[in-house]
Design a protein around this nucleic acid. Structure first.
Lengths: 384, 384
DNA sequence: GCATTTGTTACACTTAGTGTGTGACAGTTA
DNA sequence: TAACTGTCACACACTAAGTGTAACAAATGC
């Protein structure tokens, strides 16, 4: 039987007489509370399709289980009996997110309300996978002790890795991660953490962060570009991550042939160029933090990748037609703007009406998006 | 309030005390019967997630409403009380599909079981839209009388038009169809036919045919290429048509820049070339019927479009990653094979494991796929 | 202070699926 | 040919979950 995290969820998080964490209607209400912080019970009734009585009862059981907090009456709603404010109870559960890239594992602990409780990272150096995971586990234990988090409230682990999906929980990552490739990561990590583990491609983790914390909260169909050492991304359809036939929808790099591949907008090439030009930029995260568009070589690189970039944007438009394309990953916002300024949509207007093209948006999430996305993935899978 | 066909469905097709045609569970059973012709009631229980009792009761109500026929006991199932064979009752409802292209409107009448009852077409010439629709309506009336179809069993109309979606039921079609562009087609057609009308892009109609009658019956994630005068297509995710942000997912032509656009694999260019070479090929449908790969100019054209074709296939792979890409529309099967033989996937293997790429499949549906797809669209929207 | 408005809560009702048990039937065995 | 066995049909009581009606509670505003 294939590994599935859903069957491994602990009893204390499940509904009575049921092996799910929340029913479809419960999830729809939880989603609304997530998206509208400070909502009152009566306002929620208006947003939901359910009747007032059903909303009331469902919230009652959610509050009894400690998932939702019924707060102070909300003021300023006009006449009538005041309605309590609703809040997701962060204390009900927390999850750990891991993002494995070629040189570092980012760790992030997030509670059910979406609050980041801790962040840290472990450098890979030349340590083997087992050793690295052992260090990650120690980090986690440290965070738990420092924050006074009980093991019982630990819901699960989200695990993102830079590499494409093969099948089950197997991935194919780039060379430095050869040890992590081609093996079933799900059972391995479950054994280490003793909690259910949701695995995903790293760019998909960023996409989930964008769904839960970013532009995806208001835009239902979008494409997320994750610019990193290489680059990938993800598609969101109707607020849900789209997987495609093999789980690799949004692995945009694949569209280039050998030659064009060298002029694709992957940050490794910009980094190399800057270093060749003597600009002191040791890493991609440094580049993101201190980016200056006047650095020697930036303009040149942008001009060089513009054709491949425009091909990318138009291919996404043609194939998937999202409402928006979000620039994320480690891309410096100002660099993203330079690309956006050079965008050329190929479609020509007909009768004055052009085919509506996607908006181009710079992600407002930090560069830790992947680890954050990995961390909320368990909650997104079960609560929202 | 925007036009919606679902609210216009006539009483005789709706459930008691409900304004839907079939509940989620009813639809899941109907889908299974559709996909497994000759299924017995007991076999259906095994395929469905529901219990035997629930299946029994749901089938009972569906049989009472005349949607399903309980037939003869199925022989050869071993011991036990014999179980009746199940059949969708074609007589319960029929629908009319229209496919509007630049020179012709194809008409197709399909019953609920998927059987084609009639096919015909109306040439557009220089007739205006109103006049053409009037002729289509006369054709429909003729078919109804000849086949003895009662108006009461007429469920609705599926309408496909070659042009991209704008919003609501407005489309932007190529020049010969300027009269059909930029207007709300839904209310207009509802007024003419007096039945709910589901509108869609023409290539999406072909995609729906592929879902219901073709490769989509067994493959859940695929991309459909509709080669016609121009070319478009559609995406299927988990057996459902994917719309994207503006309803234009799968409008693949959009990915080419001005220059490459002239070397894209649209059949208009092949037709022109053949005619220039003195090959007697008056139309695309003639070309499909009598295609010969030795015609003067075929090989040359295929070589010329191969780069753009490979870009297309790789872009679909990169962006959406389907399990299969289906070659459909008016493309002659042998011509499709010539392209497939020239396919080059750009991905390189890593650790000997390549990223799994989509299978390339030639559609087995006839060239009337668009009208057929348009015709089943109302059933697909409400029953399956 | 009272009417108005709106949220809370109780209770009967509806819908839809489940669990149990009995009888029907075909094929096998004695 | 009668008994046995496994599978299916079907009836009935039960459960889960949402709806509709109505009484009651708590604020606002005149």
């Amino acid at each position: 039987m294939p590994y599935s995290p859903n069957t491994l969820i602990e009893q204390q998080f499940l509904r009575a007489n049921d092996d799910a964490v929340a029913s479809a209607n419960e999830r729809s209400l939880l989603r609304l509370i997530w998206r509208h912080p400070g909502l009152s019970r009566s306002e929620l009734t208006g947003l939901s399709d359910l009747t007032q009585q059903s909303v009331h009862r469902i919230l009652d059981t959610l509050a009894e289980r400690g998932i939702v907090l019924l707060g102070e009456p909300k003021p300023g709603l006009g006449s009538g009996q005041p309605s309590p404010m609703l809040q997701i109870n962060g204390g009900h559960a927390y999850a750990c997110g891991l993002s494995v890239t070629s040189d570092v594992i980012d760790i992030c602990i997030v509670d059910l309300s979406g609050k980041t409780l801790a962040e840290s990272s472990v450098l890979l150096w030349d340590r083997g996978m087992r050793k690295s995971l052992e260090l990650v586990y120690q980090e986690l234990i440290g965070h738990q002790q420092r924050l006074g988090l009980s093991k019982e409230r630990f819901f699960g682990v989200g695990f993102g890795i830079a590499g494409f999906h093969l099948d089950g929980t197997r991935y194919n990552a780039s060379l430095p991660l050869h040890e992590w490739s081609l093996i079933e990561l799900g059972p391995l990590l479950y054994q280490l953490f003793g909690k259910p583990v949701w695995t995903m491609n790293g760019a998909k983790a960023g996409t989930i962060a964008e769904i839960m914390f970013g532009a995806g909260r208001h835009i239902k169909h979008l494409a997320y570009l994750s610019f990193n050492y290489g680059f990938g991304g993800g598609l969101i359809s109707d607020g849900e991550l789209l997987l495609g036939g093999n789980g690799n929808a949004g692995e945009f790099s694949q569209m280039y042939d050998h030659e064009e591949n060298l002029r694709r907008p992957a940050l490794q090439y910009l980094l190399e160029r800057l270093q060749r030009n003597g600009v002191n930029v040791p890493s991609i995260s440094y580049m993101r933090k201190h980016f200056d568009r006047n650095w020697q070589g930036v303009e040149e690189w942008v001009d060089e990748v513009t054709p491949a970039y425009n091909r990318l944007v138009n291919a996404i438009w043609a194939v998937y037609d999202p409402q928006a394309i979000v620039f994320g990953g480690q891309m410096p916002p100002d660099l993203a703007q330079m690309l956006i300024d050079r965008t050329e949509f190929f479609g020509r207007p007909r009768y004055g009406a052009s085919r509506p093209h996607p908006k181009l948006i710079i992600s407002e999430l930090g560069s830790d998006a992947a680890a954050m996305g990995a961390a909320v993935r368990p909650f997104q899978a079960c609560f929202y």
